[in-house]
């Protein structure tokens, strides 16, 4: 019985490894509220929509098509590479890089920068929430 409880406990821990920490949950709730305020039909973030956005191609500022995957690759568990400087980027997937999506300040900074670089505008609350919901599953 003790063993069973331990196993259940461990599997819950393993599941939680793929969840947002408390400050990030608060941030996601704020995004959710903002999304609802701008669109009354909004009913939650969608990882699948986030994945589609993450892989969607847009005309970049340098006249070349760009997407999030240009630097981060299609497999978020792999290293990426900065397309401008060739510098290596550590994996985005929290399952292999536990620091990812753990610091609200970092998350806000990179969402602002990268939406601007890929979409040439800031992301909406829904878009940001969708993308984060996708990345957290990786």
């Amino acid at each position: 019985m003790k063993k069973l409880l331990l196993m259940v406990g461990l599997s819950i821990l393993a599941l939680q490894a793929q969840e947002f920490n408390a400050p990030m949950q608060t941030y996601m709730q704020a995004l959710s509220l903002e999304a609802k305020n701008t669109d009354s039909t909004f009913n939650g973030f969608d990882a699948k929509r986030g994945e589609t956005l993450f892989q969607s191609k847009h005309m970049g500022k340098k006249g070349v098509e760009i997407s999030c995957t240009t630097c981060h690759t299609i497999n978020l568990k792999n290293n990426g590479q900065n397309v401008n400087t060739n510098k290596s980027i550590l994996p985005l997937a929290p399952s292999v890089n536990t620091g990812r999506l753990s610091d609200v300040k970092e998350v806000e900074k990179w969402l602002r920068r990268n939406f601007n670089d890929v979409l040439n505008r800031e992301g909406t609350a829904r878009e940001k929430g969708d993308v984060l919901s996708y990345i957290i599953t990786q």
């Binding site: 500022k61 340098k62 401008n84 300040k105 900074k109 602002r112 920068r113 990268n114 601007n116 670089d117």
Partner: peptide, 12 residues
């Protein structure tokens, strides 16, 4: 920094 050699590198 918001247009740092063609990239957004803005800081808080």
């Amino acid at each position: 920094l918001s247009d740092h050699f063609g990239t957004d590198a803005s800081l808080n």
